[in-house]
């Protein structure tokens, strides 16, 4: 690992000031950044340890809409085990527990989880081409090993997927990311936080260089009774998703009043299925209903040499998750 300077500021303002210098990166849990630094994928000159900032709380906030605010430094394990999260946002708790290992969840923070980089092998191997790591060098995965890669929203520049489970649940739950920077505080809708690769796969998200994530805010909802996170992977635990589905239904008298669907392992960001959500509204929460939406869900999907199996696995996972959420599995 290359040498770097290390600072541990105690105020938000010092963190923001430090971020204005190029080569500066924030470290929170470090579970992905230290890994990337060991691989030589990232080599910051300076690390700003933000663990002294008071951003660990998980709290219920009364307002026009009741929300739950989760501090950016709350640990993945802390959120997953939190009584209020388990009761009111069980989908988030499930998704968190499906990710990484118990050890890593004790290190990884909510903010860091959103900022983690893709695990595409071409991104991780500094000897290989990758437009995300080294813009203009090409995408090795396009014609190479692409079993784990995207089927939605990809570009010729990048077909990598976002690795987070937590983010898939937050996308389904219409979370908001609260950030603070030189220009002050702003709120980014979750769907706008992560980017599609387009011509700039080096940019994972829309956070400005001087900005720091402070909270993730989730509006309260009627989905707690009928939500489910289903992750399909190569081994039973501790592996990244081939595909995963976060499904939240509001069911009244056997009819779907409202639905939220996001999937992981299929795109450069958690992928929302707005058309499917619309199509489910008003329909009976039945196996028949769910099995009919597979085709709609897969519109626009495009596979590569090694990941064509995702064209079948994705709708199958989605239907299975919907059945679990509706408690008819």
């Amino acid at each position: 690992m290359k040498q770097f300077q290390y600072v541990r500021p105690t105020s938000q303002q010092s963190v923001i000031d430090a971020l204005t210098k190029p080569g500066t990166k924030i470290i929170a849990g470090g579970s992905n950044l230290v890994d990337l630094m060991k691989h030589g994928v990232m080599s910051p000159d300076k690390l700003v340890d933000i663990n002294k900032l008071p951003l660990r709380d998980i709290s219920s906030i009364m307002g026009n809409v009741r929300t739950i605010a989760i501090g950016a430094l709350a640990l993945n394990s802390q959120v997953a085990e939190h009584a209020m999260i388990k009761e009111r946002l069980p989908l988030l708790s499930q998704a968190l527990n499906a990710g990484a290992s118990a050890q890593l969840r004790n290190m990884a923070t909510v903010g860091g989880n959103l900022m983690q980089r893709t695990r595409c092998p071409y991104f991780y191997d500094t000897a290989l081409p990758c437009n995300k790591r080294n813009p203009g060098s090409g995408c090795g995965a396009l014609e190479g090993f692409n079993r784990m890669h995207a089927i939605f929203g990809q570009s010729e520049k990048c077909i990598a997927v976002h690795p987070s489970d937590m983010a898939v649940a937050l996308a389904a739950l219409d979370a908001t990311v609260e950030v603070v920077g030189k220009k002050g505080r702003r709120y980014i809708a979750f769907k706008d936080f992560h980017r599609l690769p387009g011509d700039h796969p080096e940019l994972d998200n829309t956070l400005a260089k001087d900005e720091l994530i402070t909270n993730v805010i989730v509006p309260e909802n009627n989905f707690a009774k009928n939500s489910y996170y289903l992750k399909v992977r190569d081994r039973a635990s501790y592996a990244f998703a081939l595909v995963s589905a976060a499904v939240a239904l509001d069911i009244d008298n056997g009819r779907i009043q409202d639905a939220r669907i996001a999937m992981g392992g299929v795109a450069h960001k958690p992928w929302r299925f707005y058309e499917v959500e619309k199509a489910l509204k008003g329909k009976p929460a039945s196996t028949e209903t769910f099995e009919q939406i597979g085709e709609l869900a897969m519109q626009g999907a495009k596979a590569y040499k090694e990941n064509a199996f995702k064209l079948k696995l994705t709708p199958a996972t989605l239907v299975e998750a919907l059945k679990h959420a509706a408690r008819i599995a």
Binding site: Y6, R8, I27, G30, S31, V34, D35, L47, D49, N51, S77, A102, Q103, L104, N106, M107
Partner: peptide, 15 residues
Amino acid sequence: GKRVNSCLTLAVMTH
């Protein structure tokens, strides 16, 4: 008291 991977923990952060 929490289990972690010490290989991904910077020693300076356990101050």
